[in-house]
Protein backbone atom coordinates (compact mmCIF):
# COMPACT_ATOMS: atom_id res chain seq x y z
CA UNK A 1 0.00 0.00 0.00
CA UNK A 2 2.70 2.42 1.10
CA UNK A 3 4.88 2.11 -1.99
CA UNK A 4 1.91 2.80 -4.23
CA UNK A 5 0.82 5.68 -2.00
CA UNK A 6 4.28 7.16 -2.29
CA UNK A 7 4.00 7.69 -6.02
CA UNK A 8 0.33 8.74 -5.79
CA UNK A 9 1.18 11.44 -3.23
CA UNK A 10 4.34 12.62 -4.97
CA UNK A 11 2.47 12.79 -8.29
CA UNK A 12 -0.34 14.73 -6.63
CA UNK A 13 2.17 17.20 -5.18
CA UNK A 14 3.94 17.59 -8.52
CA UNK A 15 0.62 18.01 -10.32
CA UNK A 16 -0.51 20.62 -7.79
CA UNK A 17 2.70 22.59 -8.26
CA UNK A 18 2.81 21.99 -12.01
CA UNK A 19 6.26 20.51 -11.62
CA UNK A 20 7.67 17.46 -13.40
CA UNK A 21 9.78 14.63 -12.05
CA UNK A 22 13.38 15.81 -11.85
CA UNK A 23 12.56 19.49 -12.30
CA UNK A 24 15.42 21.57 -10.99
CA UNK A 25 15.16 23.24 -7.65
CA UNK A 26 14.80 26.96 -7.04
CA UNK A 27 17.52 28.47 -4.87
CA UNK A 28 16.60 28.37 -1.19
CA UNK A 29 16.11 31.82 0.35
CA UNK A 30 18.92 32.71 2.73
CA UNK A 31 18.75 32.18 6.48
CA UNK A 32 19.91 35.06 8.66
CA UNK A 33 23.57 35.45 9.45
CA UNK A 34 24.65 34.10 12.83
CA UNK A 35 24.94 36.11 15.99
CA UNK A 36 28.01 38.17 16.88
CA UNK A 37 30.06 36.74 19.72
CA UNK A 38 31.37 38.69 22.72
CA UNK A 39 34.47 37.73 24.71
CA UNK A 40 34.56 34.28 26.29
CA UNK A 41 34.14 35.66 29.79
CA UNK A 42 31.08 37.66 28.75
CA UNK A 43 29.61 34.71 26.88
CA UNK A 44 30.03 32.47 29.92
CA UNK A 45 28.44 35.06 32.18
CA UNK A 46 25.52 35.40 29.78
CA UNK A 47 25.09 31.63 29.74
CA UNK A 48 25.00 31.47 33.53
CA UNK A 49 22.53 34.36 33.75
CA UNK A 50 20.21 32.85 31.16
CA UNK A 51 20.22 29.41 32.80
CA UNK A 52 19.33 31.03 36.10
CA UNK A 53 16.48 32.96 34.46
CA UNK A 54 15.09 29.59 33.43
CA UNK A 55 15.15 28.39 37.08
CA UNK A 56 18.28 26.35 36.45
CA UNK A 57 21.45 26.63 38.56
CA UNK A 58 24.74 27.51 36.92
CA UNK A 59 28.15 28.41 38.27
CA UNK A 60 31.80 28.70 37.32
CA UNK A 61 33.89 26.11 39.07
CA UNK A 62 37.55 25.12 39.16
CA UNK A 63 38.52 21.41 39.27
CA UNK A 64 39.73 21.80 42.85
CA UNK A 65 36.26 22.93 43.98
CA UNK A 66 34.44 19.99 42.42
CA UNK A 67 34.74 17.75 45.46
CA UNK A 68 33.11 20.23 47.80
CA UNK A 69 30.40 21.23 45.35
CA UNK A 70 29.53 17.59 44.79
CA UNK A 71 29.25 16.95 48.51
CA UNK A 72 26.92 19.90 48.83
CA UNK A 73 24.78 18.74 45.92
CA UNK A 74 24.48 15.25 47.40
CA UNK A 75 23.49 16.70 50.75
CA UNK A 76 21.01 19.27 49.39
CA UNK A 77 19.15 16.84 47.16
CA UNK A 78 19.64 13.79 49.40
CA UNK A 79 21.16 11.85 46.55
CA UNK A 80 21.27 8.10 47.19
CA UNK A 81 21.81 6.78 43.69
CA UNK A 82 23.54 8.35 40.73
CA UNK A 83 24.30 7.48 37.12
CA UNK A 84 26.92 9.12 34.95
CA UNK A 85 28.30 9.20 31.44
CA UNK A 86 31.48 7.39 30.66
CA UNK A 87 33.17 10.62 29.51
CA UNK A 88 36.89 11.40 29.82
CA UNK A 89 36.19 14.75 31.49
CA UNK A 90 34.01 13.16 34.18
CA UNK A 91 36.67 10.49 34.73
CA UNK A 92 39.41 13.07 35.09
CA UNK A 93 37.35 14.82 37.74
CA UNK A 94 37.03 11.45 39.49
CA UNK A 95 33.29 11.88 39.97
CA UNK A 96 32.40 8.20 40.36
CA UNK A 97 34.93 7.68 43.13
CA UNK A 98 33.96 10.88 44.91
CA UNK A 99 30.27 9.90 44.81
CA UNK A 100 31.04 6.46 46.23
CA UNK A 101 33.07 8.15 48.99
CA UNK A 102 30.03 10.28 49.78
CA UNK A 103 27.97 7.12 50.23
CA UNK A 104 26.14 7.38 46.92
CA UNK A 105 25.50 4.21 44.94
CA UNK A 106 26.71 4.64 41.36
CA UNK A 107 24.49 2.75 38.92
CA UNK A 108 25.94 1.61 35.57
CA UNK A 109 24.54 3.70 32.70
CA UNK A 110 23.41 0.63 30.74
CA UNK A 111 21.14 -0.59 33.57
CA UNK A 112 17.48 -1.19 32.72
CA UNK A 113 15.18 1.80 32.50
CA UNK A 114 13.32 1.00 35.74
CA UNK A 115 16.60 1.18 37.67
CA UNK A 116 17.66 4.38 35.93
CA UNK A 117 14.29 5.90 36.72
CA UNK A 118 14.99 5.43 40.44
CA UNK A 119 18.25 7.38 40.24
CA UNK A 120 18.34 10.73 41.98
CA UNK A 121 21.18 12.22 39.99
CA UNK A 122 22.36 11.96 36.39
CA UNK A 123 25.69 13.48 35.37
CA UNK A 124 26.61 14.34 31.78
CA UNK A 125 29.02 16.56 29.92
CA UNK A 126 27.58 19.23 27.64
CA UNK A 127 28.87 19.03 24.08
CA UNK A 128 27.57 22.50 23.26
CA UNK A 129 26.35 25.57 25.10
CA UNK A 130 24.39 28.52 23.70
CA UNK A 131 24.68 31.61 25.91
CA UNK A 132 21.83 33.59 24.37
CA UNK A 133 19.16 31.10 25.40
CA UNK A 134 20.86 29.30 28.33
CA UNK A 135 20.90 26.10 26.30
CA UNK A 136 23.00 22.95 26.56
CA UNK A 137 23.45 20.58 23.62
CA UNK A 138 24.07 16.88 24.24
CA UNK A 139 24.90 14.27 21.59
CA UNK A 140 24.52 10.58 22.28
CA UNK A 141 26.43 7.33 21.78
CA UNK A 142 27.00 4.11 23.70
CA UNK A 143 29.13 5.92 26.32
CA UNK A 144 26.78 8.90 26.44
CA UNK A 145 23.33 7.33 26.78
CA UNK A 146 20.22 9.48 26.37
CA UNK A 147 18.33 8.62 29.55
CA UNK A 148 20.99 9.93 31.96
CA UNK A 149 19.90 13.53 31.40
CA UNK A 150 16.20 12.60 31.44
CA UNK A 151 15.09 10.07 34.05
CA UNK A 152 16.82 11.21 37.30
CA UNK A 153 15.13 14.06 39.14
CA UNK A 154 18.39 16.03 39.22
CA UNK A 155 20.61 16.61 36.19
CA UNK A 156 24.16 17.86 36.57
CA UNK A 157 25.86 18.92 33.36
CA UNK A 158 29.54 19.74 33.41
CA UNK A 159 31.04 21.75 30.58
CA UNK A 160 34.28 23.25 29.44
CA UNK A 161 34.39 26.78 28.00
CA UNK A 162 35.29 25.15 24.67
CA UNK A 163 31.68 23.94 24.42
CA UNK A 164 30.48 27.51 23.83
CA UNK A 165 28.91 28.19 20.44
CA UNK A 166 27.59 31.48 19.12
CA UNK A 167 24.29 30.31 17.75
CA UNK A 168 22.15 27.38 16.64
CA UNK A 169 23.85 27.63 13.23
CA UNK A 170 27.20 26.48 14.66
CA UNK A 171 25.68 23.70 16.75
CA UNK A 172 23.77 22.40 13.75
CA UNK A 173 26.80 22.50 11.49
CA UNK A 174 28.53 20.07 13.86
CA UNK A 175 25.57 18.00 15.05
CA UNK A 176 23.81 17.26 11.79
CA UNK A 177 25.64 14.01 11.10
CA UNK A 178 24.74 12.56 14.51
CA UNK A 179 21.79 10.26 15.18
CA UNK A 180 20.65 12.31 18.12
CA UNK A 181 20.94 15.77 19.58
CA UNK A 182 19.04 17.13 22.53
CA UNK A 183 18.95 20.82 23.40
CA UNK A 184 18.15 21.43 27.06
CA UNK A 185 17.21 24.86 28.37
CA UNK A 186 16.53 24.73 32.08
CA UNK A 187 14.48 22.19 34.05
CA UNK A 188 11.36 20.44 32.74
CA UNK A 189 8.39 22.76 33.08
CA UNK A 190 4.67 23.11 32.39
CA UNK A 191 2.00 25.77 32.72
CA UNK A 192 -0.85 23.48 31.73
CA UNK A 193 -2.85 23.88 34.95
CA UNK A 194 -4.28 27.40 35.09
CA UNK A 195 -1.07 28.76 33.57
CA UNK A 196 0.77 28.14 36.87
CA UNK A 197 4.48 27.60 36.11
CA UNK A 198 5.50 24.25 37.59
CA UNK A 199 8.90 22.58 37.40
CA UNK A 200 9.79 18.93 36.97
CA UNK A 201 6.74 17.55 35.26
CA UNK A 202 8.45 14.69 33.39
CA UNK A 203 12.13 15.50 33.07
CA UNK A 204 14.48 16.62 35.85
CA UNK A 205 13.06 19.01 38.44
CA UNK A 206 16.49 20.60 38.86
CA UNK A 207 19.31 21.27 36.44
CA UNK A 208 22.78 22.26 37.65
CA UNK A 209 25.44 23.41 35.23
CA UNK A 210 29.07 23.58 36.27
CA UNK A 211 31.20 25.60 33.91
CA UNK A 212 34.82 24.65 34.42
CA UNK A 213 37.12 27.64 34.41
CA UNK A 214 39.64 25.79 32.30
CA UNK A 215 39.62 23.73 29.11
CA UNK A 216 42.35 21.46 30.46
Amino acid sequence: MSEQNRSVILDAVRGALQRKLGDSLAVRPPALSPRQVASQAEELQLLIDEIQKLSGHAQMISPSQVSMALAELVRTYQVKQAVLWDAPLLQRLGLATRLTDLGVRVIPAHSDKQTLSECDLGITEADFALPETGTLGLLSNAEHPRLVSLLPRLHLAIMRPAALRADLHQVFAEARTHAYLILISGPSRTSDIEMTPTLGVHGPRDVHVWVLDTDQ
Binding site: L54, A109, H110, S140, N141, A142, E143, P145, A175, H178, A179, Y180, L181, I182, L183, I184, S185, G186, P187, S188, R189, G203
Partner: peptide, 14 residues
Amino acid sequence: VYTSFITGPRRAKD
Protein backbone atom coordinates in the same frame (compact mmCIF):
# COMPACT_ATOMS: atom_id res chain seq x y z
CA VAL B 1 13.02 23.52 27.32
CA TYR B 2 13.69 20.47 25.16
CA THR B 3 14.29 20.29 21.44
CA SER B 4 14.98 16.74 20.21
CA PHE B 5 16.68 16.00 16.90
CA ILE B 6 16.22 12.36 15.97
CA THR B 7 17.80 10.81 12.89
CA GLY B 8 16.73 7.19 12.49
CA PRO B 9 16.78 4.58 15.28
CA ARG B 10 19.56 4.31 17.91
CA ARG B 11 22.91 3.28 16.49
CA ALA B 12 24.12 1.35 19.55
CA LYS B 13 22.04 -0.51 22.13
CA ASP B 14 23.65 1.21 25.12
